[in-house]
Structure formats: C-alpha cells, structure tokens
Design a binder for these strands. Structure first.
Lengths: 141, 141
DNA sequence: ACGAAAATGATAATCATTCTCAAAGATAAA
DNA sequence: TTTATCTTTGAGAATGATTATCATTTTCGT
C-alpha cells in the first residue's frame, strides 16, 4: 500500500515537530499509528507498516516507538494479560475500558475523575504528571 | 529466618480458604507477601522467600503467584518502566501513586472516583469487574 | 498408611524487547 | 550539489522475564 502526498506531508511535519529525523521507516510507522483505530502491539504494527514500507524491520519498529514515546507522540499501554500496546497521542487525554470477554479496548474520558486525581495528588504533596485508568469490564446482557 | 506458629496458622488457613493445597513453599511465599510493605518483583520475592524456605525455586514463585492471583489473594501490577510487581490483596481496594523520581509506590483510595467509575462503566453498557488507577507524580518542593 | 492427583526443582524453551555493528541514509554547511 | 558528520537502519545475537517439561516428591481424602 502507498500513502498519498497529503498524508505524507502531515506525517513528515509531525516528525519534524517532534524534533526527530525523518526516515521512510518512521513515516510509515507513524502513518500506520495515525490510521489505527485500535491499540496494536509491536508485531502488529510491524506487519501493518511493512505493507507501506517493506524495508522496515521489527527492531526499527521498537526503536521508533521508543523515540516517539519519548517525544510524547505515542503512548504505551500494558493492559492485563498481554504485551505492550501502542496508540498515537490524541489532543484530549482519555482512559480505557477493557472488555474482559473480547479483549476490545474502548476509550472514554471523565473531567471529574481527572480533577479529583489532581486534588488527591496535591493533598499528598505530589504534582501529577500523568496517569493511567483502566476499567476491566464485561458487557451487560 | 523461621516463622512463628501463629503466623503459620494464619497463612495456612488463608491458603485453605483460597482453595489451594498447602505446601511449605506456598506458606513461605504468602508469608513474605503478607509481611511486605512494598511492591516487590518476582526475583525479590524469591530472595525473601528463600530466607524462610530455602527449597523454594524461582519457577515455584512464579507458579504460586499465578495460583494466588487466580484465587484473588494477590494482585499483579505493571507500573511503567519495569517488570511485574506483586502485593497481597487487602480488605479495601486501593490505587497507587508512583513517584517518578524515586520509583516509590504509595497507596491511596478515593470513594468518589470508585463511584464515578461504576457510573461510567454502566453508562457505556458495561459491568465494572475491577480497575487500575496509577498516578505518576513528582514530589512538590 | 495408601493411592490418586497435584506440586516441586532443575532446566530448557519461549516471548518480547534491546543491543551490536557494519552499512546506508539524513542533515547542515560550504 | 558535494561533502562531512552524525544518526538510523537491518540482521541477527543477546538479554531478561516468564512459562513449559518431566521425573520425583508431596499433599490429602479415604
């Protein structure tokens, strides 16, 4: 699969903006992450990115993920019962519901919880930098 | 180190209560978990349990942890930047603040957040089974 | 105490992730 | 655009955590 010029420009400027060198492997991976509607693991990202840029290797997928996480462009998750999964950072923060039956991951966000978290951290003498909230659930019915 | 008879009886009945067979290795590990004030990883538990029961192996530490987690007697955590860490389940649920500078883990709990979580899950058509909330913080001052 | 079923230690195997290093590629300056 | 420097890459080896294997030992209801 080939990515169009408009997508390519956006991705390239994201990378520049993140202060990292632009390579075709990085463009392919970030493109795939941007397009993903789920939360893939490293192997799955490798497969998908290989379709765009066959010269990418698994080592580079891991290296690039580390770089993008460092630059806060990508988030790493380690939900129960499995390896690390990744997603491109979005404008607004969100947390996750994990369906214990299907493994599906759904996003949600709660202003109230976010606010209380800040208060709790402050009360205990801490500045909240970031957080993770995972709700492990089963579908009703 | 040797554990006294009172401790031993308590641990043995915990194991019986959890519906698992009682072995000296399991007693040693659960004793160590019960005594721990921190959140050790498997190797650290292996070291500490070896002191009580030198015949225990690392494989048995992992196996027993799985058994105790299945029985809901132990919780597994995977905080950012490190392997799995374990703690004995307590009466009341709690969440964790992770000090990004020291790695120290502090427990807290918030009735309000717990309540909102249930509401959010219900709103989205899910039954909340359990959850994980981790606040990554830095000490103020 | 007996016997079926389960747990154990030692070690091999697996799995995800990181490291190594020579070659290729990206960037900035000329 | 050519060059010089510094970074990134692929391939595969290495690592580290966790799980599986299997012969032997232990548990526990009878």
């Amino acid at each position: 699969m080939k990515l169009n010029q408009k997508d390519e420009l956006l991705i390239v400027s994201s990378l520049r903006n993140a202060g990292v060198r632009v390579t075709k492997q990085r463009v392919a991976l970030l493109y795939i992450l941007d397009k993903a509607k789920d939360h893939p693991d490293a192997i799955e990202l490798y497969k998908r990115a290989s379709d765009v840029e066959p010269t990418i290797s698994l080592a580079t997928v891991y290296r690039t993920l580390s770089v993008l996480i460092e630059a806060k462009v990508v988030h790493r998750h380690s939900f129960e019962g499995g390896g690390a999964r990744f997603e491109k950072a979005k404008r607004l923060h969100h947390d996750h519901i994990v369906d214990l039956n299907t493994g599906e991951v759904i996003e949600f966000n709660s202003e109230i919880i976010e606010k209380i978290q800040f208060e709790i951290a402050a009360e205990m003498g801490y500045e909240l930098i970031h957080h993770k909230l995972e709700l492990y659930c089963r579908k009703i019915n």
